[in-house]
């Protein structure tokens, strides 16, 4: 009995060995040292100086920009993650139909995730331009005076959320792969029970897709809280800090103001936020994620 237990354990460790070794070799040291750095004053060039919990104290009690950045990011995550999942699943379902030209459609929807960010950013600056942009042009035709989008603190975050939907092609690919893994007999059984398309969607497709949805949810949360590139290219945090995402603020502190100790503290607070959410989500799995076997 004991040897079986040992054998099973050993096989398990054997399979995860590559990651475990890689973790110990490449990841553990950087993680530990960044915890250490978060308790120091560190300008990157000269050796860090221990300052105790001062970075954390300042961050929590005395840094309005930290609060702004956290709030801006929370709001972004709360909207963009669910929206991304709904759109990604819907698109994948559409692309899983038996219609002609699927290869072409799929390629088209994947396109925005491979076009370089500069190109996507520029086209968005054009589309959302309040003066000559296509979006306001079309709104004008139906009698609506469009907002200033990226130039208006109220609308800039929404503009970036809209733009994030262009990247949905990436998760679409994952959903498509998930859809292809749903065993045909489940549908046959549902048909025999006389289920209509909507019922089949509700009782077969969506439940069977939940493991992949769960994956995209977790990765979506991690990605949304570290959202950086588009905001860096398009708004640099403005207007008036309305798009000062957490990672953007962290980047400024780390590399522009050379305050890596403080940036490390910022990073670990973010880490705590993300992991709290993730652990809650992992706990919730039992209630809604269906693993086939």
């Amino acid at each position: 009995m004991r040897s079986k237990f040992l054998r099973e354990n050993l096989t398990g460790y054997g399979f995860i060995a590559p990651w475990l070794i890689g973790f110990l070799l490449f990841t553990s040291f950087p993680f530990l040292s960044s915890i250490y750095l978060s308790f120091t004053r560190y300008n990157i060039v000269t050796p860090p100086v221990w300052v105790g919990g001062q970075n954390y104290k300042m961050l929590l009690h005395d840094d309005p920009q930290f609060h702004t950045a956290l709030w801006v990011t929370l709001r972004f995550a709360a909207v963009s993650v669910p929206l991304g999942i709904v759109c990604g699943v819907a698109l994948a379902l559409l692309l899983n139909q038996n219609v002609r030209g699927l290869s072409i459609y799929r390629t088209i929807f994947f396109l925005p995730s491979i076009v370089p960010t500069v190109a996507t950013a520029t086209i968005f600056l054009w589309l959302l331009n309040p003066e000559i942009g296509l979006v306001n042009g079309m709104l004008h035709k139906i009698g609506i005076e469009g907002p200033a989008w990226l130039l208006d603190p109220k609308w800039a975050p929404w503009s970036l959320i809209m733009m994030s939907l262009w990247g949905v092609g990436g998760s679409m690919v994952i959903y498509l792969a998930g859809l292809k893994d749903i065993p045909a007999y489940l549908y046959e059984a549902a048909l025999l029970d006389g289920a209509n398309p909507v019922q089949r969607l509700r009782h077969v497709t969506i439940p069977m897709l939940t493991p992949v949805i769960f994956f995209n949810l977790i990765m979506g949360v991690i990605g949304a809280f570290q959202y950086f590139t588009e905001a860096y290219v398009m708004t640099k945090g403005g207007p008036e800090d309305s798009t000062l995402y957490y990672a953007l603020y962290l980047f400024q502190r780390a590399w522009r103001y050379l305050d890596m100790g403080y940036a490390s503290a910022l990073a670990w607070v973010l880490f705590a936020v993300i992991m709290t959410i993730n652990i809650v989500l992992f706990r919730s799995q039992k209630k809604w994620v269906h693993y086939g076997s």
Binding site: I222, A254, M260, A263, A267
Partner: peptide, 8 residues
């Protein structure tokens, strides 16, 4: 390991 920003 994915939840800590690479910047730091």
């Amino acid at each position: 390991t994915m939840a800590l920003p690479a910047q730091v």
